[in-house]
Design a protein around this nucleic acid. Sequence first.
DNA 1: GCCAACGTTGGC
DNA 2: GCCAACGTTGGC
Length: 148
Amino acid sequence: MKSEPTEFSMEDLAVSGTTYWSGVRNFQARNWMRDTMRVGDGVLFYHSNVPPIGIAGEAEVVRTGYPDHTAWDPKDRHFDPKSSPHAPLWFMVDLRYVRRCRQIISLAQLKSTPQLAQMIVVQRGVRLSVQPVKLAEWKIIMAFPEWV
DNA sequence: GCCAACGTTGGC
DNA sequence: GCCAACGTTGGC
């Protein structure tokens, strides 16, 4: 799951312990949260856009998809008049902090790992902010020395 | 800051 | 249903 650290970072999650992943306004990303993610699923927390770019830590799904209430608030940056409590359009999950990386696992590092060549995040032009990670990819990443 | 790549919108 | 225009994402 991608987040710009200036908006919400791995450090922020470490402080709060849990969070709801609001603000996703892309249908494919929404579908992953609403339809596929399950309690206990591991999450790679990825810092986008602001260097150092890459995986910053690990989280865990603690609540499956439910309506994103920030879409209903006209004052919210992610307000969407097409969503309502009666007919929610956008969904989110809750995450729990697991651990931080001692050091960011950089995008460059992911790209230079041949076994991760098929990973979605390294594909050209992919902007999806919530995306699935294969078990084999997860295992390779968890074996990186950046983990505590 | 640039810009490629993508998703969404809306006219037709 | 097509597709041009537009807005956004996100690496560099």
